[in-house]
Each structure stands twice: as C-alpha cells, then as structure tokens.
C-alpha cells in the first residue's frame, strides 16, 4: 500500500510528468484527446500521489479507494497516472491506441487500474453510487472518486445518480466535474447550457466546491475540506484549461479531438519542457 504521508509533496512535478506521458502517447497516434489529458493532469497528480489509497502491485486490492473514470476518452490521462504510479509499465504507453493494445483510446475495465468501462457517458456516477454503497455496507474506509465532465452533466442519468448519492448520504463518494468548456460540438453554453453547474450540485444535496482545476494546491485543499463532511457526497467542480501546459494546444480552437501535424510535436514538447522549468 502507498501511504499518502510517505509521498513527497511534489504534486506539481508529478503533474508535469503526467503531461509528458500524455504527449508521448498522443504523438504516437498523431491525434486524440491530448487536450483533456493535459487539462486533467493536475487532478490526477493530486489523487494518485496525494490522496488515493492503492497498491500498484495489486490493483484489485479490495480495500483500495476507487478512481472511476466516467469519461472513457480521458483514458490518455488515466494511463499516464497509472504508469507514473507503477500500476502499468511506462514503456507500455507507447502502445496507446494501437491495434491489440490494452491501452485502448477509451479505457476498458480489463486494463489494470481501470474500475469500469467508461465512454458511454452518464454511467460513471451511477456505478460509483453502487460502489460507495457496497463499501459502506462492508464497513470499509475506502472511498470512491468519480471523474465526470461538464458535457456529461447533460446526461439525465448523472442526475438520477446525484439524487441517489445524496439520498443515501454517501459521504464516501466524491465527484469531480471537469469544466473545460468544450464538448464534441462546441462549448456547452452553445450546445446545452449547464451553468451555474455548482449550484445544481448543491441543490441536489451535495457538499459542493468550485476551484481552479489546474491548481494542485487548490484541488488538494478542496479535498481536505470535503473530508470534514461525513453525511453528504462531495462535488468538486474544476475549471480547467484544455491543453494546459502546452500553449500550442491551449490556444487551439475546437480542441475536443486535436489533430496535430507531425512537425508540431517538437514544438509541443519544447513548450511543455519550458513550462516545467
């Protein structure tokens, strides 16, 4: 087991390392959800290197905390975290999205460290509610951390599950809502407005906070504050910037699924390197 206390408080460095893994994977396929992977690296660094209890050598350890990825296409970010955490070999990242690889573009539950098959949006929170109920029924201290997206808040099932989480008073359930203001057809405000999203979660009975999702200290502080509330589930709305850490991708329009010219990778890697100094 990895004890949070034993981990060096270098979350920013971890986030930077995750971004490096994301670029490594994205370059191999030449396109993809690199913007999401870069944008969510700060949260994943906080969770995998400061909060989650897990055993990299035993990914199915029954007493582990669960990280549930609703948004399967963020797999690129999750694989980066799993590799950095030692759950999967770093070298395997080079197979991302390749035929026959277990690191599929949308994360399948057969891959170590992946709790459920996400990708059909609106599933993750429903299953997270079930996991949280089950862990509580077993008297385990384990917690469930679900990552969903702003666009996913348009799925009705997300709100069915939000209602259930509050009704059953699941203090061991955490939902992170990644608001990167981009879905397949454009910004949510133009597709189907969801704001003020934090007020919706609050109205559904969740202990709710909204923070800068690219600030590791702010994320860690929000989780610490949430842990003081035992009888309600916790929503932490994260305002993030897609492509964070690589200005080339931060500035690209319509960046839900980025296509990158071969020569741009050199620039992207250099920009990330400069940001890490």
């Amino acid at each position: 087991m990895t004890s949070p206390a034993a981990i060096p408080q270098s979350l920013s460095r971890r986030a930077h390392a995750l971004r490096g893994h994301v670029l490594r994977m994205a370059e191999i396929v030449g396109q993809g959800y690199v913007g999401q992977g870069l944008g969510i690296s700060d949260l994943l660094a906080v969770l995998y290197f400061g909060e989650l209890r897990y055993d990299p050598k035993q990914p199915d350890w029954p007493d582990r905390d669960r990280f549930v990825l609703s948004i399967g296409h963020y797999a690129i970010g999750l694989y980066a975290a799993l590799a950095e955490a030692g759950v999967i070999p770093v070298g395997e990242l080079d197979t991302y999205g390749s035929d026959g690889s277990r690191l599929e573009m949308s994360a399948p539950e057969t891959t170590p460290g992946v709790e459920m098959t996400g990708g059909s949006l609106g599933h993750g929170l429903t299953q997270s509610v079930g996991m949280a109920l089950g862990l509580r029924l077993d008297g385990k201290p384990s917690r469930v951390f679900n990552l969903l997206s702003d666009g996913e808040c348009q799925e009705g099932s997300t709100w069915e599950a939000a209602m259930a989480g509050a009704h059953h008073r699941l203090g061991n359930l955490f939902a992170f809502i990644d608001c990167n203001n981009q879905q397949a057809d454009g910004p949510p405000s133009a597709i189907m407005g969801i704001e003020p999203i934090h007020k919706k979660w609050e109205a559904f009975g969740w202990h709710t906070q909204r923070v800068n999702g690219n600030d590791v200290e702010a994320i860690a502080a929000a989780i610490a504050a949430a842990k003081g509330i035992a009888d309600r589930p916790h929503a932490i709305v994260l305002d993030t910037l897609m492509g964070k850490g690589v200005p080339l991708f931060e500035q690209r329009e319509k960046n839900h699924f980025i296509r990158v010219a071969p020569e741009e990778w050199t620039l992207a890697k250099r920009q990330l390197e400069e940001a890490g100094r």
């Binding site: 459920m116 599933h123 079930g130 996991m131 109920l133 209602m163």
Partner: peptide, 21 residues
C-alpha cells in the same frame, strides 16, 4: 436500497455493488 423512479441509476448502482463483491 430504494433507488426511486430512476432505472438507469438502478441498473448502474447494481453494477457498482457487484463490483464491490
């Protein structure tokens, strides 16, 4: 567990419970 009139939540929650054994 009563899940209310919410069948997607019912089935998803059941799957989550199954994943905890």
């Amino acid at each position: 567990f009563q899940m209310g009139m919410a069948e997607q939540s019912l089935v998803g929650c059941a799957a989550g419970l199954a994943r905890t054994g």
